[in-house]
Design a protein around this nucleic acid. Structure first.
Length: 106
DNA sequence: CACCTGACATAAT
DNA sequence: AATTATGCCAGGT
């Protein structure tokens, strides 16, 4: 296992953009890639899943295009994972059942 | 260098 | 509305 792999420039760009997300707002992988002008939803997701900067890059502020949560908590709502949803609400994101209010999505 | 995988998106059925 | 198929692009093997 490689200890600390060199962060690829692409992923680095993703992290920078995610940091730009205003508090209480969320964005989608597709939109994010589009705004960056490079890559695609999948590539962006991989960068975030590999997110080396945990709290610094609020990956939880990035959701799927259908306004569902995607991988972090959408797969299996464990207690710790459920806590992430709470965190988003804390940031000001409004959850409508299983989806996020479109007004919170950029 | 070729094939496979994946925290997605969109269209078609 | 739900499921299936295809496209997308970078990273890993």
């Amino acid at each position: 296992m490689k200890t600390s792999r060199p962060i690829t420039p692409y992923a680095f760009s993703v992290y920078e953009w995610v940091q730009k997300i205003p508090r209480g707002k969320v964005t989608t992988y597709g939109a994010l890639a589009r705004q960056m002008g490079e890559g695609s939803a999948r590539s962006a997701g991989q960068a975030l899943k590999r997110n080396p900067f945990a709290p610094e890059v609020p990956c939880h502020r990035v959701i799927a295009g259908n306004r569902t949560l995607g991988g972090f908590n959408g797969q299996r709502e464990g207690k710790e994972l459920l806590r992430k949803r709470r965190l988003l609400e804390s940031e000001g994101v409004v959850f409508e059942g299983k989806t996020v209010a479109k007004d919170c999505v950029i």
